[in-house]
Simulated scan of single mutants.
Amino acid sequence: MGRSLYLILNRGLVVFGSFERSTIRDETSKSALIFTTSSLLKFPDTLTETYLQEFVAQQSMTIEFGVDVDRISVVSGNYHLSTNKGAVAARNLFIATGRDRKPIIPAWAGLEHFRGEVIHAAEFGSPQEYDGKRVLVVGSGNSGFDILNHLAKQKPSALWLSSRHGPTLVPKRLFGVTVHRLSPLLACLPTRLADAALAATSYMAFGDLRRFGIGNPTAGGASRLKDGTALASDDGAVRAIKAGTIKVMPELQSFDEDQVHFRDGKLVRQTSLLQRLVTLLISKGSSAISIC
């Protein structure tokens, strides 16, 4: 691997991976590469795939794609990386792989016998790939609702959501204003007040979702943000849940060859979901390592 003053190693094959691109693909694109005071207030509208590609080109950044780092060691004060494309040495190392870098699939009973397809959210790919399929999304956090938002606009033959706890859910926009733009204001509030503000925003936007099977979150949104748990953002999924297009199921308990078992208090319900079932397991992190 060639030497460079500044080098970025990325496991993905493009500047902006497929899952991250799906997260904000409907935001407007802007070509300005310098954030002004006004443009910062419009974040993340300015943070688009086009922007990142233009930024990389303008800065002449050296990026190696498709790189897996197997081992990092320190020799004589320098970092030595072993990768699938050769060795790399650097004086300084920045690791930006995210807190959820390694996909985790729970060890549900019977999963090894299940004949349906099991896909982790990190490998979600294109929403169009799920047209005509029976899809069970497990987990209602940030990644889970992002997937639901996209699948609600597609044509799966059936769509379910199973979750242990309710999410801290906010609308993408409220009264025409992007909710993320209010983040600086929430950051100025004490955590308890910010929790209350987020709960009020959710209720104002969606009403009481418990009658549709979505439970209350285990903690307030601002409190969970401090623990590293992102808010879930709605962009069509709640409408589909209320319409019955997305059916909310109890907590997933176990699998057998052609059925998924759900827990509902002391009751276990069996639902046959064999026909081309895809289970999406929710956990996602970034995959870039920067060294210089």
Rank of each mutant, 00 (worst) to 15 (best):
Q59L: 07
E54V: 01
L174Y: 06
Q270T: 14
A187C: 10
L111P: 10
L40F: 02
S82N: 11
P167N: 08
L189Q: 02
G66R: 04
G166Q: 12
H150P: 01
S73V: 07
S4N: 06
F19S: 00
M204E: 11
F262A: 10
S202A: 15
S183Y: 11
V137T: 08
P167G: 07
G139I: 05
T97N: 07
E129H: 14
S29M: 09
K226E: 09
F145M: 12
I104H: 14
A243R: 15
H165M: 11
A57H: 08
S290P: 00
H120S: 10
L198N: 03
D70T: 00
I34Q: 00
D45A: 13
F206S: 04
G12Q: 00
K155M: 09
N142K: 11
A90G: 08
G125Y: 07
S4R: 01
V67M: 02
I214R: 01
R3N: 07
Q59V: 04
G116I: 13
S254M: 10
L41A: 11
L93F: 02
V260T: 12
Y203S: 11
S140I: 02
D146A: 11
L209W: 06
T28Y: 06
D227W: 07
L185F: 13
G141N: 07
L174M: 13
N149F: 05
A197P: 05
H261F: 13
L209D: 05
L47H: 09
L280S: 03
S283R: 03
L274A: 14
S283D: 09
G66K: 08
F65S: 06
Y51G: 03
T229N: 10
K42C: 03
S29D: 13
L52S: 04
W108M: 14
L198W: 02
A96W: 04
M1T: 01
S183G: 06
F262Y: 08
T279Q: 09
A152W: 06
L185E: 06
S73A: 05
L280G: 02
P156M: 12
K266Q: 13
R263I: 10
H165W: 05
I105E: 14
I34F: 05
A243E: 15
D208A: 12
L81R: 01
G86D: 02
D234F: 08
P217S: 08
R164A: 15
V278C: 15
D235H: 10
L5I: 08
L174S: 12
V88H: 07
S287M: 03
R164G: 15
G236L: 12
T37C: 04
K133R: 14
S140K: 02
L281N: 10
R25A: 11
A187S: 11
Y51F: 15
G98R: 06
A243D: 15
S163A: 15
T23K: 03
T218P: 01
D146H: 06
T48C: 05
S18I: 02
D234V: 08
Q154T: 14
T191Q: 09
A199L: 10
T46A: 04
T201P: 04
V14K: 00
S18Y: 03
Q253E: 15
L182W: 06
F19L: 10
L136W: 01
E129D: 15
D195Y: 03
L198P: 02
G221I: 00
D70C: 06
S22Y: 08
I95V: 14
V268S: 13
P156E: 12
Q154G: 14
V138H: 01
F145V: 09
K247R: 14
